[in-house]
Amino acid sequence: MFEPVPQFEEEKSRLRQRAFEQRKAILRADWADMAKVAANHFLAGVPLSASDVVALYWPIRDEIDCKPLLTALMDSGQPVCLPVVLGDGEPLEMRLWEQGQPLYPSGFGTLAPAETAPVVEPDLVVIPLLAFDRLGTRLGYGKGYYDRTLAGYAKKPLLVGYAFSGQELDFIPREAHDLPLDMLVTEAGVQKFPAA
């Protein structure tokens, strides 16, 4: 479905390497505080109705910890779902995480609700990322899971990047299938991007 353009892939590969190094340079001692501040910015600045289903993720590697946000949303009764990787080349399955239900390992070091949890299409997707630019272009890990998932939805959800402010790059090339972010939340605040 998504055929990579060779020159874009080469550039994105170079940018991924730079982004990994840039993210790794963020002082680990500050991570927990930055995650709490980012969660507060999200709760104060991202529009949500009580019935909106929010897709979050279980953080891996050096990603900003979204568990403070996850906990706050769950405690407030906001419907939350988590992604499950079904296989290479497959879209993610978003499973509703119901209060009191356990999470299980679901690959790549992530946790997700059980196979019996309801599968949903979220109204808002909080997207993990490796880097972002000032135009709202997101650089992921290159597997295309979110691109495939979003392409299959009946309606486009609000796309919110969640990251450390230190993950910004000057420019990230955007291919036809790359959906830009609507908003970005970092420890520095909430940024809205104009519709592309």
Rank of each mutant, 00 (worst) to 15 (best):
L73M: 08
M74A: 15
D75L: 01
D75Q: 09
D75N: 11
G77I: 03
G77E: 08
Q78M: 10
P79I: 14
P79S: 11
V80T: 03
V80S: 04
V80Y: 05
L82W: 10
L82I: 05
L82E: 03
P83C: 11
V84E: 01
V84I: 13
V85R: 04
V85Q: 08
V85K: 05
L86Q: 14
L86H: 09
L86E: 15
L86M: 09
G87L: 02
G87E: 07
G89H: 08
G89V: 02
E90F: 01
E90Y: 06
E90T: 05
P91W: 02
P91I: 07
P91H: 03
L92V: 14
L92C: 11
E93F: 02
E93G: 09
E93N: 05
R95I: 12
L96Y: 11
W97P: 09
E98L: 15
Q99A: 13
Q99D: 10
G100W: 05
G100F: 03
G100C: 06
Q101K: 15
Q101M: 14
Q101I: 04
Q101C: 13
P102R: 13
L103N: 10
L103C: 12
Y104M: 03
Y104W: 11
Y104L: 12
P105V: 04
P105M: 09
S106E: 05
S106H: 10
G107D: 06
G109R: 08
G109T: 06
G109Y: 03
T110L: 02
T110M: 13
L111R: 01
A112T: 12
A112W: 10
P113D: 06
P113A: 12
P113F: 05
A114R: 11
E115T: 13
T116C: 07
T116E: 14
A117P: 03
A117I: 10
P118K: 08
P118H: 08
V119K: 04
V119Y: 00
V120S: 03
E121P: 04
P122I: 09
P122A: 13
P122C: 13
D123T: 05
D123Q: 14
D123R: 07
D123P: 02
D123L: 00
L124H: 01
L124N: 00
V125G: 04
V125Y: 02
V125L: 10
V125P: 09
V126K: 02
V126W: 04
I127Q: 13
I127D: 01
P128R: 01
P128H: 01
L129W: 00
